[in-house]
């Protein structure tokens, strides 16, 4: 499977190609967040790596499901959302995956990356992907850098830490 053509600009993250079929949503909240779809005969897993409702940008990951796992992917049920997330993290760990950033739920940019073979590999690789996009952008003005630093400090609860 050619991972570079797995997503297309402007498409929804949960069905990122016009000819993707068989959308199977494993978890949704407002819109699909985790699931699978098919491209030709190939089964692909997608998962939101970061999709917080009030943020315009979201980050998504995609990886082919090996044929030997397809039956498992069709049948597996999970007692809790945490169990599902753990399973998804394990599916992506150690694999080559496509990471995409979406703007208002429309795919904007993407690239292929090797996911670290650790429990939080999906999330940390998604963070690396976004970092690389930011590094490729023109340098921010001092005022914009300060604003970004304040946002980061807020997110990490700097004041009450």
């Amino acid at each position: 499977m050619n991972l570079d053509t797995l997503v297309r600009q402007g498409e929804r993250p949960w069905l990122p190609l016009p000819d993707a079929t068989d959308l199977d949503v494993w978890m949704e909240y407002g819109h699909p967040r985790i699931g699978t779809f098919r491209v030709g005969h190939d089964l692909v897993m997608f998962a939101a790596a970061y999709d917080v409702d009030d943020d315009r940008l979201s980050v998504w990951a995609y990886a082919p499901v090996p044929a030997e796992f397809e039956a498992l992917a069709r049948e597996t049920q999970f007692d809790t959302p945490a169990d599902l997330r753990t399973f998804v993290n394990n599916v992506f760990a150690g694999r080559t995956a496509v990471f995409a950033v979406a703007d208002n739920s429309c795919i904007a940019r993407w690239s292929t990356r090797d996911v670290a073979n650790v429990e939080e590999g999906l999330i940390s690789t998604a963070a690396d992907f976004l970092d690389s996009l930011l590094r490729a952008m023109p340098l921010l003005s001092p005022a914009a850098r300060l604003q970004a630093a304040v946002k980061a400090a807020e997110a990490r609860d700097l004041v009450s830490a």
Binding site: G30, H31, A48, D51, V52, P81, N104, S105, I123
Partner: peptide
Amino acid sequence: QREDNVSVFWGRVSARDATAYIRAAQG
């Protein structure tokens, strides 16, 4: 432009359990 529905959970669900679901969905 993002959704066509509002998500809820069936029955009485605690704030902790509902939030755990949503945060898992968010990644």
